[in-house]
Design a protein around this nucleic acid. Structure first.
Lengths: 159, 159
DNA sequence: TATGATTGCTTGCGAAGTCAACTATACCAA
DNA sequence: TTGGTATAGTTGACTTCGCAAGCAATCATA
């Protein structure tokens, strides 16, 4: 039946140890960081991610579709996420004059303030749970290694 | 109003570059790997993860709660995930004789077969999308760096 | 032995996100 | 101009998962 018994238990884990650790680290960190962000500012990790992108973008605005691709969310996902940020008054819609298909997501003044407020504590959280584990060189190294991984729709990615 | 303008756009990204890359890499890889696994075997990435754990466990069984902690899922999450695997006949419930609170999740013969079938193509996918990006040393290095990150409920973790 | 705390597990509910389907606009080519 | 295709965006149905609440069994302690 069983054509060939797979290697020992430990070997199975070894074969993709780094990938498994990436999975686990992501789950655990995401949960903890999201929890803190939610408690302190009422933002999910994705909300924050979108705010950073808009904050760093020229004119603090992006086409919704580019935003979706950057934070790796489906088009419908972005619609729904932005719905919340718009309801809170942190992001506004702005229609494109030259192409009626396009809508921009623009950070409002309130959104800028909200981001800057959340930014401080969130960076501290990342420092505590993530960055403090590595020296400067190690941090760069980790970023370089992770940067080699495929981002699927990488075409528009600007991170 | 704005007490202090935050550094330039690029600097904001720099401050947590590795973390952002971990987020993005996880999203993209997860989506691609899960898609392939689903298409080829009708399994989600988490389903697979649970199957690996059970396959590698002594007697191919684990207490449901330990399983949850290992794959970083809430207790209710494990109940629902296992529901699917049980319906498919790959996992069975086994009540503990010495402690009536405890239920084991046991891999059935069909489950073993299913895992071994999925294992082959999934490892190839991981190799293609993940492992092939790194040399042996780099892979170890990446695993080591990621291994330093906190796993929250790390108490029971055995990965 | 009785009582209170803890542990394992499940269920109701809600949040978040995907896919498929649809609309509207834009672009391209005959 | 018209017809076909691609792009931007939204919506509905569905899935997945966490939290809060609850139940049952166990353990600790008096």
């Amino acid at each position: 039946m069983m054509s060939q018994v797979l290697s020992t238990q430990t070997e199975i884990a070894q074969e993709h140890r780094a990938w498994i650790r990436l999975l686990r680290a992501h789950s655990a960190l995401t949960r903890e960081l999201s929890g803190r962000l939610e408690a302190a500012h009422g933002l999910s990790l994705r909300d924050y991610d979108v705010l950073v992108q808009l904050y760093s973008a020229p004119d603090r605005r992006m086409r919704r579709i580019d935003l979706a691709r950057t934070v790796i969310l489906s088009p419908s996902g972005i619609t729904r996420l932005l719905e919340g940020l718009e309801r809170a008054g942190w992001v506004a819609k702005h229609h494109c004059a030259s192409d009626a298909r396009v809508t921009y997501a623009v950070l409002t003044d309130a959104g800028v303030a909200k981001f800057e407020e959340a930014h401080v504590t969130h960076l501290a959280d990342i420092e505590e749970l993530f960055a403090s584990r590595f020296s400067g060189d190690e941090h760069d190294q980790l970023a370089e290694l992770l940067g080699r991984l495929p981002l699927a729709d990488a075409g528009t990615c600007n991170a």
